[in-house]
């Protein structure tokens, strides 16, 4: 009987400990939205970097901002309807290649940005989820040739609670980092 009582106390204590790290639904929703917002930021940055009308200095500034969205060592996949393999590039190289694409006009649009795997708390205290996006790419070369494709991409998202001291105040903030971007489908 006593053993049973002690077991119940131990289970209750464990439940209290594990429950401490769970966010309220309202806070979780805010964190979910923040991560989606970072993916939308990336979408906008890619569009600016790829756009041939963007001044060189602006494109470089935006590349810096875009790089900051990623965790170190992340890779971005590139596919084509003309080949079956997918090439993966380190983030900086991907953006440099994007800026230097051999087209006269480039339009990149992301749509249907949504979670396919919700942010889940990991044992290391980070939240990890996967957001899927569709990218519509259109490039027109100097001789008028047009290339278009639509790719489905899965983006791993890491969210971590951090703290910093600002003006004597301790500020708790959510650090969102994007991981690898994997191409899962390519079509015309």
């Amino acid at each position: 009987m006593r053993k049973l009582f002690l077991t119940i106390i131990a289970i209750c204590s464990l439940a209290v400990v594990s429950g401490q790290d769970e966010l309220s639904p309202e806070r979780k929703e805010a964190v979910d939205s923040l991560a989606l917002e970072k993916v939308r930021d990336l979408s906008r940055y890619i569009s600016i970097i790829g756009n041939k009308d963007t001044p060189f200095s602006e494109a470089n500034r935006v590349i810096d901002r875009a790089e900051e969205l990623f965790a170190a060592g992340s890779e971005i996949g590139v596919s084509s309807i003309n080949r079956s393999d997918i090439n993966y590039y380190e983030v900086t190289e991907y953006f440099k290649r994007l800026m230097a694409l051999n087209y006269d006009r480039v339009t990149i649009k992301w749509f249907n940005i949504q979670y396919i795997s919700d942010l889940e708390l990991q044992p290391d205290g980070r939240y990890v989820g996967v957001i899927t996006v569709y990218q519509r790419f259109e490039g027109i070369s100097a001789d008028g040739l047009r290339y278009m494709d639509t790719t489905k991409k899965d983006i791993t998202v890491y969210v971590e609670r951090k703290q910093t001291q600002i003006g004597g105040r301790l500020i708790g903030f959510w650090d969102v980092m994007l991981g690898d971007i994997r191409v899962t489908e390519t079509s015309t």
Binding site: E26, R27, E29, K162, I171, G172
Partner: peptide, 18 residues
């Protein structure tokens, strides 16, 4: 510094990265 509040619950604010 610019701080952005993404949610408020009770006396606690959650921020985006400063």
């Amino acid at each position: 510094t610019v701080l952005i509040i993404i949610s408020q619950s009770g006396d606690m604010n959650d921020y985006d990265q400063p």
